[in-house]
Every structure is written in C-alpha cells, then in structure tokens.
Design a protein around this nucleic acid. Structure first.
Lengths: 154, 154
DNA sequence: CATGATAGACAACCTGGTTAACTATATGGG
DNA sequence: CCCATATAGTTAACCAGGTTGTCTATCATG
C-alpha cells in the first residue's frame, strides 16, 4: 500500500485537514466560533505589527483585491482594523484588534497542544523526523504561503 | 524550531501543495492543461466504473448539487459524460471518457514518480515511516475525502 | 394505487479568487 | 515647479465551487 503514490498527497492533506479542523473546533470552544480556516493564515500574515493590503496580498500570493476582501471580512467580524498611514496617505495599515490578537495567540497554543498529541502518539523522535523530512521536501521560505484559495483556483 | 506547533500544519500543506503543483505541471506537459487541482480527486472518486451525482457527493463530502456542478465542468472539458441508467431512469451514470481515463492513469503514474523522488531524497525507509505515521494520525477510510472546497468553505 | 423516498435540476446566495478600470497620493526628472 | 510615472486602494464584473431550498420525475412499497 505504501508504494501507491496517490496515498502520500492524500495523507498529507488529510493530516492537514484534521489539524485545522481540530484547531477550529477548539477555537470555537474558546470563544472564537467565527474564524474560518483561512483567517488563521491571514492573521498570521498580518502579524503583530500590521501590514497593508498590497503587502498582505504579496505575502499570501493573491491579488491586492482579494487580500482587501479578506481584510473586509476580518474587519466585519472584529478581528482587524484599518487606519490611514500618517506618513503616506495612500497606504492603509491593517492591524489586528485585541480580539484578533487573542485568536492568534490561542491558535498558537492550540497548535502546540495538537503537536504534543502527535508527539504522544508517535514519539517525539518520530515526529521530529517527520517534521525534518517535510522541511527537507518543501521550500525554505516559510512565508509567502500562496495558500488561501489556491486549492480549486489555480 | 520543531517545537513550534504552527510549523507542522504549514509543512503538511506546503508538501501537499508541492505535490499537486508538480502533478499538474506534468499533466499539462503530457497534454492535460485543463485539469484543475480538484478534478483529480473527483475523477478518482468517479473511478473506472462510474457513479452518480448523489454517490459522488457522498464520496467527496459535498452536496449532490455541488457534485453535479463539478461534473458539469468535467463534462464541458471532455473528461466525463453522463448517461441515463437504463434500469433506473432517475439516475444518471457519470463515467469518465477515454480522455478522462487517460488523465487518471497519467496522474497515478506521475504520483508514483513523485513518490520515487521523495524516496530518493529521504530514503525509502524514512518515507515509509512518514507514510506510516501519517496513516496512524489520519482516519482509516481513505475515501470519503471531504476535500474539495473544504478549505475556505467550512 | 397512494404515499414516501430518492435522483436530479434549478435558483438564489456566499466566499474567495480573478481582471480591469478608476482615484488619490508620492516621487523623481526635466 | 510641474508633469510623468509608480503605487495604494476601491469598485465592478466575472468565475468556481460551495451552500439551502424548492421542484419534478421516477421508483418502491404498504
């Protein structure tokens, strides 16, 4: 069975999906029921210091318009806010609200918990080997995700 | 770095994405430029014997309407066809066309090649360990993917 | 034969993506 | 100093793929 090349991508996707589903179930339990799968990546890309729509689009590998729409949604549910840059009035700084920060912090902690569950199941050494192998097979630059919306779009 | 829980899902996704991108680049090179990332999963779910929209939806974890729309698209680009079931005229059998079959066959071979590349890089034993660990952490039933469109939708 | 279950189609809507066109602001060179 | 160009953001129109809800046609059964 392990010689079937189709299984590898499938398992990678299932594993990813499981982690993300568990993350969101837990986030919902902790008071963030409105987070969509994508938002975590977007908030991570916004980061604690804020960014702009154009930079965000570049970071996520989507157009500035798409990035803008997503920020609209984050703004609508109270996780991000926009403010004009005083030093360049073309730019609008996108920053996380305290609620957004909270969601981001909790996500990080939940991911750590989930990783610990994997370590308990597989053993820390096996998990580190797995992470190391994945790191070896994937691009170095962890950012420039290109992720949201890629599936089904490209 | 490997104690950062955020890296695991990210690497899983990047690895998946890489494989899928390489698959589609190679499929395009081999005469199938119109395949979208999802179609591979859908064609795999249709299988060599055909299925119906309802069954397909169940297999993919989406509604029958969504499955129907996707079949519309596969039909449009000549990879699937529909025919009324002679034994139950409510049902419409969805089958792959020869072109669809060809794409599916090539996909399987390309995935095998990609897996071989991973084996060459990581060693067959490490790769088998990786697959085995992923298998251990993900649901048993390989089908019922629940995949297409899940990201961004749920 | 009437009733209920099932398959499919259609419409309206949502999200997240795209291109394209437009406005407003910076910036740098004649 | 001013104009040309580049950049940030918005808006609009579209697409893909998903959802619910409704409707019709067919099957199967009491």
């Amino acid at each position: 069975m392990s010689s079937n090349g189709f299984e590898l991508p499938l398992r990678l996707l299932l594993a990813f999906r499981m982690l993300i589903d568990e993350l969101h179930a837990e986030l919902a339990r902790q008071g963030h029921p409105d987070i969509r799968p994508m938002y975590g990546f977007v908030m991570q890309a916004i980061g604690p210091d804020g960014t702009t729509a154009v930079e965000l689009g570049r970071a996520l590998g989507v157009t500035k318009q798409a990035a803008g729409k997503t920020v609209d949604n984050l703004e609508r549910i109270g996780y991000a806010e926009r403010a004009t840059d005083p030093r360049d009035s073309r730019r609008k700084l996108v920053r996380l609200t305290p609620r957004g920060m909270d969601a981001l912090d909790r996500s990080a902690r939940i991911f750590d918990t989930l990783r610990a569950r994997w370590a308990a199941e597989l053993g820390e050494d096996r998990l580190q080997a797995l992470e190391s192998d994945l790191r070896r097979m994937t691009p170095d630059n962890p950012w420039r995700l290109d992720i949201p919306g890629w599936f089904g779009a490209l």
